[in-house]
Amino acid sequence: MKEKNRGLAVFTFLVFVFLLGPLLIISVTSFEGGSVLKFPIETFSFKWYENIFKVSMFLTTFKTSIIVSLAGNLLALLLGVPAAYALSRFNFKGKAVLNAVFISPILIPGIVLGFTFLRYIVTTYQLPIYAGLFIGHTIIMLPFVIRVVSSSLSTFDFSIEEAAHSLGASKIGTFIQVVLPNIKSGIIAAVMIAFLESFNNVDISVFMTGPGVSTFPIQMLTYVETYFDPTVAAISVLLMIITAFFMFIVERLMGLSYFTKR
């Protein structure tokens, strides 16, 4: 019995090393003083962190990413919250099919989705780059919004809706005054998860970006192609911190059990 437990402990340890090792190495290398990425570091410095703010393309693309993610997020909410509500509240024909359609952007490989967007949004309809990015990112965020909001609606007692009705509230009034406040934490969690999904996205954006307009992760890729200094490592560390912070809030609001549910 004891022997078996030790084996399991070693295995668990190895999994953690495998998962967290690269993150640790990246974090360490970001503090390298020289101009070449190396591990372990030879001198210690913050200069590559400073360099992030010196490269103007990082700032420009960061703004682009923020705008696309926030605007897409807003649209995904406007579409996703009512959709999640309808899917949870009502029984209708084709509900299972609709559910599957809404989830499909998670299941379809990003590269396939990206190529499809390129084929239609960019080639056929020749939409401007910003519009294309906006549409593409809305579509990849939508399933996350629907999933997270649905899971918070699954514990919602719809009889309080009837209670509000009987007290004189209209249908829309009930939704705003009773339903929304009770799924508030789900909506905030949805916003954060969708934001991270969009902000970190490469495989869709790579097809949608063009001359002059790029997103932050794409700019990172471009940078690595030309320079081999630790700037990207420094960016990675910052992104990790932001992501961890967001996930901490989501965990506080809803619990991460959402990710283990299917």
């Binding site: 007692d157 009889s159 309080i160 009837e162 209670a163 509000a164 009987s166 009773v178 406040p181 009770n182 508030k184």
Partner: peptide, 13 residues
């Protein structure tokens, strides 16, 4: 009309 529900249906928030 006033309606009283089996599960109370109070507004939790």
């Amino acid at each position: 009309f006033g309606f009283v529900f089996q599960n109370y249906a109070l507004f939790p928030h």
